[in-house]
């Protein structure tokens, strides 16, 4: 098999998994199932990142997003341990979601048209060795984007303090 074919096949596989996982995420009744579906989507997205030569993000997506953040999510869902009776009463979820998607379809096609008009069948050009690896991304992050990076760290700190403040509040 030629490498081009290989890439196409990988893209089809990952894209399908991502979209199906996404659909699954929004149609599960129980949040735990939905969260696990989202993990699948995230991992498929990581695969797409790899296809796009984003090595560093590929790692981050799996380790931080699919790993840490989703683990926290699932932990909280299990902590609350909601019974079926405590769930909001939602009937015919799939049908509702499909109707909503149908309503959103025109907007999607608008976007889709714009994308096609703008880029058509433009192909990716080959990239230099080491594109998207940790070194160039790190250089950019600590030079050009140094100030936003620091602000993001402060944002995380604020979030941390906020969470502690919220958790300490007693009803």
């Amino acid at each position: 098999m030629k490498p081009i074919m290989e890439t196409t096949i990988y893209f089809i596989i990952f894209a399908s998994i991502a979209v199906l996982g996404g659909f699954s995420t929004i149609t599960r009744r129980h949040p735990l199932s939905a969260a696990l579906s989202l993990v699948v989507t995230l991992i498929a997205l990581a695969g797409l990142y790899a296809l796009l030569a984003a090595d560093f993000l590929f790692v981050i997506q799996i380790l931080v997003y699919a790993g840490a953040i989703m683990a926290l999510m699932i932990f909280v869902i299990m902590l609350l341990n909601l019974k079926q009776s405590e769930m909001p009463p939602e009937e015919q979820i799939e049908k509702r979601v499909l109707v909503t998607l149908a309503l959103l379809a025109p907007l999607f096609f608008l976007v889709q048209t714009a994308i096609v008009r703008q880029f058509g069948d433009a192909a990716f050009q080959p990239v230099a060795e080491g594109f998207g690896s940790i070194k160039p991304v790190g250089m950019l992050l600590y030079q050009t984007y140094f100030l936003p990076f620091e602000i993001i760290s402060i944002l995380l700190l604020v979030a941390l303090v906020g969470v502690v403040a919220l958790a300490k509040r007693r009803a």
């Binding site: 907007l107 608008l110 976007v111 048209t113 714009a114 008009r117 703008q118």
Partner: peptide, 13 residues
Amino acid sequence: LAYLYFTLHLPGV
């Protein structure tokens, strides 16, 4: 916003 953007910046859409 999308409608505005597309009509203003991508006249052919």
